[in-house]
């Protein structure tokens, strides 16, 4: 469950005013909006990367408004994927696990499972610079999912992919949602993407979020 209650954020000309959003557990939610309307900002607020001036944020049954990003147990995939340039795919997938009290064997097992699931096994020793757009997107998803978060936030995850890869990535996201049952918040400006993936659809406009018809 994701719940934003009366969120206020004012930065220069940009405003979120008394923004409320309630996404039920296990839902694949899509948030649509024009460029610059605050979609990415909303994800950054959820991830704890941007503090709010008022209101409260709930993830599951825990209030996380003042918690640091690491304590929120939330997977986040930014639009540019931000794969670490100095790490090979294997290290990217195991990154979050190495920060937690897992044994080397457990990390290796989970990384291999993730690689198999996302079809990354043949890319494990590659650096991000040598990956195609679709491969980079799967690695970014795998890195965010490796620690098995309860919530996944995706910022325009299918942008920059050609039509074939776009369809393939949509199927992958559907499969991730079905197999994990996690709550997913997917931000996009594509109606086609939203129609295909969303259980519930919201639109953000002028600092407010409202359900879409």
């Amino acid at each position: 469950m994701i719940k934003l209650d009366q969120i206020e954020l004012h930065q220069g000309d940009f405003h979120l005013q008394q923004l409320c959003l309630d996404i039920p557990k296990g839902c694949y939610a899509v948030l649509m909006g024009k460029s610059g309307c605050g979609k990415t900002t909303l994800l950054e607020i959820l991830a704890g990367l941007r503090p709010v001036q008022a209101g409260s944020i709930w993830l599951g049954h825990q209030e996380v408004t003042h918690l640091k990003p690491a304590a929120r147990q939330l997977g986040y995939v930014p639009q540019d994927r931000a794969l670490f340039p100095t790490m090979r795919v294997r290290e990217q997938l195991g990154f979050s696990l190495r920060l937690r009290p897992f044994s080397k064997e457990e990390i290796s097992k989970r990384v291999n499972e993730m690689a198999r699931w996302l079809n990354l096994e043949h890319l494990m020793e590659r650096l991000p610079q040598s990956l195609s757009g679709g491969e980079a997107q799967r690695v970014a998803l795998g890195r965010a999912l490796a620690s098995r978060p309860g919530i996944l936030c995706l910022d325009e995850p299918l942008s920059g992919l050609d039509q074939d890869l776009h369809d393939e990535a949509c199927s992958l996201l559907e499969s991730i949602h079905q197999e994990t049952g996690m709550t997913i918040l997917h931000v996009t400006h594509s109606r086609h993407e939203a129609d295909r993936l969303a259980n519930r659809l919201w639109v953000i406009d002028e600092g407010q979020v409202r359900p879409s018809a």
Binding site: E44, A47, G48, L49, K68, P69, A70, R72, L74, G75, Y76, P78, D80, A82, F84, P85, T86, F95, S96, L99, R100, R143, A144, S147
Partner: peptide, 25 residues
């Protein structure tokens, strides 16, 4: 800065984000 932000969401504190992600770059 995006690299550090992602590292924070993956479980790093600021110091870990620096030493593991920024410093090698």
């Amino acid at each position: 800065v995006r690299f550090e932000q992602v590292a924070l969401t993956l479980g790093c504190n600021r110091s870990q984000a620096f030493w593991l992600v920024v410093f090698p770059q």
